[in-house]
């Protein structure tokens, strides 16, 4: 038990340090992983020991077994996920179809196509978002089905879970006389000896203070653009509302409207079932352990 407790103490100390020192890298470091492998070995030994005690079961022994076996299953689930779990993100604009199987690099060649039928944000009265809805048509080898996903309500299909993760804006802006084109923030449109960069989007602009209200509801949208001269020359900034024309460096651009695209998170996690069982056992074991301790406390 001493070894197990020492490993737990080291994990706690390193995890605490890890939140301050390069957290992105720290928790994937070989040393940190090694501690979990050692903990796994120790918990296996401990679980077997507790199993032997269950021959004459009492609430405390059951609790100990549930807690230790629960932690073991969580570690197994995390290990399986690290080895075989797949994740990908998929940006989709309305009407666009994406190959989820290819994005995830799913083995076995099972097709899974996702088409975004619509994407909407609903708002509270104060202009902050209340929910994000993506309506999808999902196509697999045997069926086509429509579904709506939102934050906290993912879709599970053919072993793949699909989450509403984030979203972005599409700006329909093109040169007068040219083809309508949707562009994203950061894109540059070539002009004569310069380029117009789509720099920032303000969904709710306040005319009086000439500032961003910070609200997400598109009450009075503005596109902030930069015109940069080629070769690192002068830069100037402008604002444009949908429906306005932008005159810059001898060219006229039409800024028609702003649409939104969604960003879906796709994942497969074969380790989720053991991890979920482990979490249930751990919670049940902790509660049972408390009940057993409480009974003893009041008996004494």
């Amino acid at each position: 038990m001493r070894v197990g407790l020492a490993i737990l103490a080291m994990i706690a100390a390193m995890a605490a340090m890890g939140t301050f020192l390069w957290p992105g890298l720290f928790f994937r470091s070989p040393l940190f992983l090694l501690l979990f492998i050692l903990l796994f070995a120790q918990m296996t030994f401990c679980g077997l020991h507790n199993l032997r005690r269950l021959r004459s079961p009492d609430p405390r022994s059951c609790a100990l077994f549930l807690i230790h076996a629960g932690v073991l299953l969580i570690l197994i689930g995390a290990g399986v996920n690290a080895r075989s779990g797949l994740t990908a993100t998929m940006p989709l604009q309305p009407g666009e179809e994406g190959d989820a199987a290819a994005a995830l690099e799913l083995p076995g060649g099972e097709p899974l196509w996702l088409r975004l039928d619509s994407f909407d944000i609903t708002f509270y009265d104060d202009g902050s978002p209340s929910q994000y809805y993506a309506r999808l048509t999902a196509r697999t080898a045997g069926e086509t089905r429509q579904a709506e996903i939102s934050v906290n309500h993912p879709l599970s299909l053919s072993g793949v879970k699909i989450y509403q993760q984030s979203f972005g804006y599409l700006f329909w802006i093109w040169e007068e006389g040219g083809e309508p084109q949707a562009r994203r923030l950061g894109e540059r449109i070539p002009l004569t000896g310069a380029a117009l960069e789509l720099y920032h989007y303000i969904p709710a602009f306040d005319e009086e203070t000439a500032a961003d209200t910070g609200r997400l509801r598109p009450d009075d949208p503005r596109l902030v653009y930069l015109v940069r001269e080629d070769g690192g020359g002068e830069v100037y900034m402008g604002l444009a509302a949908p429906g306005e024309k932008i005159e810059a460096e001898g060219k006229t651009l039409l800024f028609e409207r702003v649409d939104m695209y969604t960003v879906l998170r796709l994942k497969t996690d074969p380790g989720l079932t053991p991890a979920a069982c482990g979490a249930i056992m751990l919670m049940a074991g902790a509660c049972l352990g408390y009940a057993a301790a409480r009974t003893r406390f009041f008996k004494q």
Partner: peptide, 10 residues
Amino acid sequence: EQAWGSYWTW
């Protein structure tokens, strides 16, 4: 797991 698609993210 329901909201962010991951039950543990450190």
